[in-house]
Amino acid sequence: MSGFPTVNFSETDEGLFTPTEIRHLMRVEYDRARRYGYPAALVMIAVDRLEYLHDLYGWESKEEILQGVIKALRATTRDSDFLGCMQDDHIMAVFPHSSEETITSIATRLLRVCRDIDFRSDGRSLRATVSIGISTLKQGGKEDFAAFLSTAEEALEFASRSGGDRYVRRESATDVIEELRQDIAEEAQRLVEEQTASEPAVAVDFGDMPETELGRSLRELFNEHAHTHGTPGILGLEEDVVRVAEHALFVAREEAVQAASTERKEQVDQLERRVAKLKELLDTTETELLEVARMKGIESGVASIYRTVQGLRDDEAAFGQKKEMLSLIFEANLKLQKRRDA
């Protein structure tokens, strides 16, 4: 058994913990990291095109290759504590306390080691590469384990669809969005506070208007006039003018306040629309990235399973007969080529 008591990659549940128990421990470990705010990483590893290996070479080679990858993982993670088990045909491992750098350097090493392994199946020299999906929990991340797991799965899918032989690290998108959302909520709150602060604490009431600057100067003006010209009729006018002027002033002020608050509300709305849009953007970006990755995969190509030129093995069924047939095919093609070149 391995040096890790919390690792069980067997199909048979042998080991200190069964894979089911390990999966439970992973969750516990993850929750702890989240609670106490230390980093953690989940790694999902898949052998590229494993199902085709099965089609081409049968089950033994598939098992053999999986075991080879597990061995490589053990070798590359000698210094780290982790929990590991199989999840369908994927290798799943949780690394508590591992920073982003640690985990990406493990992934890089693992890719290299796997690339170099000479898998042998049935006397043939095969090669296999792996895809690795990593999701990391940042300090303060809130996401639950299920989301953490599906982020790693997405990253893995992304890695294998991009042609394999690579790792992809993802932060939890929901945590990122959550962060964004909080920022925006704070911003909106600030705006609301500002808005209430600047609102006048006055109810507009014509009967009981407090004296304003404008009113006072108007009255002074009238007084002056009344004294110099002594026209009593003007006194009645005074009241009316002050009233109308003050009313106009209040209306104008109220309109200004209203306009300012509408503007703020618009700003808030706009911010909210931006949040929605950003979220939408995230979704589409993801799809687009997958597409781009897929196209990239075409450019770099997908490595063959074979390391060397093969040829018919002499212990193969009907060896002699096949050899003769192959020679005939070859000769016919050689003839064709000579004709062509002539």
Binding site: D48, E51, Y52, L56, S304, I305, Y306, T308
Partner: peptide, 25 residues
């Protein structure tokens, strides 16, 4: 040795062309 070899089988047909390769594709 250590030079990857990609083998390919192609079925060229009237209605469809299929390819099966040693990289699993």
């Amino acid at each position: 040795k250590d030079h990857g070899v990609l083998y390919m089988g192609i079925d060229l047909g009237t209605s469809r062309t299929s390819v099966s390769a040693s990289n699993g594709i």
